[in-house]
């Protein structure tokens, strides 16, 4: 789950998660030396990066985790691990603030992770059409643009189904790689 600040990522995850969305935190330093010797180097700064996630049990031995990207994209290296083994990504957009999702789209294109763009409607209202959003984001024709409602379990479920269907189509068309 990616998208700009306040677009509804945590709401989206919470709509289908069987647990209240949880937050895991990673401690980052500005140096690559690791975090063992923080006490010895007082000039080093640390930042705590939080990541929200939810969980969906799909079968006795099958659990789907939904992870939200950290708000600031300079912390997205946390995602480099997640992209490996991930099914795909949902980029949640508010069509009034499309520029907020440019970093997410660039990141997933670079990482070659299949993604779809989900327009979050407010009170069932969508200010722009799928085609307007596709054009504004310069999306290739194969990337799906769908309408969703982050507060609705059914809408979120249907967005996730669209994503997995799209990933299966991509695999069939391009073989194993995106």
């Amino acid at each position: 789950m990616a998208g700009g600040f306040g677009v509804g990522k945590t709401t989206f995850v919470g709509a289908v998660s069987e647990i209240l969305p949880l937050t895991t935190e990673a401690v980052m330093t500005d140096a690559s030396a690791g975090i063992d010797d923080l006490g010895l180097t007082p000039n080093k700064t640390t930042t705590t990066v939080a990541m929200d996630f939810g969980r969906l049990s799909l079968d006795q031995d099958l659990i789907l985790y939904l992870f939200g990207t950290p708000g600031q994209h300079r912390f997205w290296f946390m995602w480099d691990d997640l992209v490996r083994g991930a099914i795909g990504a949902v980029v949640l957009v508010d069509s009034r603030r499309l520029a907020d999702c440019f970093p997410a789209i660039d990141y997933f294109e670079e990482a070659q992770l299949p993604f779809l763009v989900a327009m979050n409607g407010w009170e069932g209202q969508f200010l722009h059409s799928e085609e307007e959003v596709r054009e504004a984001l310069s999306l290739p024709p194969h990337v799906p643009v769908v309408r969703t409602d982050a507060r609705s379990r059914d809408a979120v479920k249907s967005t996730l189904i669209s994503l997995v269907e799209y990933v299966l189509t991509v695999r069939a068309a391009y073989g194993r790689t995106y």
């Binding site: 799909l58 997995v164 990933v167």
Partner: peptide, 24 residues
């Protein structure tokens, strides 16, 4: 660990996720 095929979930896993989501 999940079964990965060159770093991606395999097709069987994707099909299972899809039917699991549809059953929700």
């Amino acid at each position: 660990m999940p079964q990965l095929n060159q770093g991606q979930p395999d097709l069987n896993l994707l099909e299972r996720v899809l039917s699991g989501l549809r059953r929700l």
